[in-house]
Amino acid sequence: MFKPQLVAGLIATLALGAQAADVLDAAISRFVALASYRATVRSVGTGGEGQLIRYGYRKPGWVRMAFVRPHAGAVLVYDPGARKVRLWPFGVGYLLVLTLSPDNALIRGEHGHRVDRSDVGALLANLAALRDRGSAAPLGDAVIGEQQVTGVEVKGAGDANVAGVHRYRVWFARDTLFPARVESYGVDGQAIETVMLEDVERDVAFPDDFFRPER
């Protein structure tokens, strides 16, 4: 027997999925149009120890991280042309400078994160890849701090995952669609990491020596 309520429910589900996909696609388009950004990044992993990093990014892939917690004072710069990382363990201006590969265990994150895949563009690419292997659903509007945000949940079908993440819950700033909060979960349902992006500045005109502080 034809059950119109089931059809209506299916249509509503498809519409919600399309709405979430639209938000993600729009966020990707906004990022593609960006030249650079700066943010304060706060993260908490499963170990409970948090990180606080002043993060700068400029296309085609320059990254600068200034650590506040842990390793206070340390500065790390990734050069996408050389595909190398310069690390000042005690801060810029000290004689000790290390040149490392981005996959060096010394600078890999708690969950294997790499500096050359640490920017918002890499996050959005992971979200799109996981959505293509699963689904996306809206989480609705909310407020984080004083910021109006809209949320999207992306989940892999079955045990599908991207870089070990099976489910993301992401809240985007409603005015810019820049990520404000990202929660990641494994296939077992356990939380992996929560990341907050605060004090975001977009299309920053960084000084010439920002990503080459040794010059």
Rank of each mutant, 00 (worst) to 15 (best):
G151K: 14
R83I: 05
V41D: 00
E193G: 08
L95K: 12
V97A: 06
P60W: 05
Y37M: 00
G45E: 02
A26K: 10
A35F: 03
I144D: 12
D119Y: 02
V75P: 03
H113Y: 11
D159Q: 15
T46Y: 01
G61K: 01
W62T: 00
G186H: 06
I107N: 00
D208I: 08
G9E: 12
Q51P: 00
Q147D: 14
Y168N: 07
V195Y: 05
L6P: 00
N126V: 00
G109F: 08
Q190G: 11
V165S: 09
F210P: 03
A136K: 01
D141P: 11
L123V: 11
R64N: 04
F90M: 07
L16F: 08
L177P: 01
G61Q: 12
V187H: 04
G45W: 00
F178G: 07
E183G: 00
R181K: 15
L130T: 02
I11L: 10
G164K: 09
D79V: 07
G9D: 14
L106M: 12
L24Q: 03
I53N: 00
G56W: 01
F210K: 09
V120D: 07
A105I: 10
L76P: 04
A12E: 13
P179Q: 02
L100W: 02
G164F: 08
D22G: 05
Y168L: 07
P138S: 07
G48A: 03
G9L: 12
W88K: 08
T13N: 05
G145M: 06
D199A: 14
F178P: 11
L124W: 10
A105H: 13
A128R: 15
F31E: 05
L106I: 12
D159I: 10
Y55V: 00
R181V: 14
G151E: 10
Y37S: 04
Y78D: 09
R212E: 13
Q5M: 03
V75N: 05
T99F: 08
R167H: 02
Y168C: 03
P4V: 09
A66E: 15
G81S: 06
G164T: 10
V149S: 14
I53T: 13
E153L: 13
K155P: 03
S101Y: 09
F178Y: 13
R215D: 11
R58P: 01
S118P: 01
R69Y: 04
A173D: 15
G186P: 05
S29Q: 12
Y78G: 08
W88L: 04
H71K: 05
V143W: 01
W62E: 04
F206Q: 05
R181P: 02
A8C: 03
A205S: 14
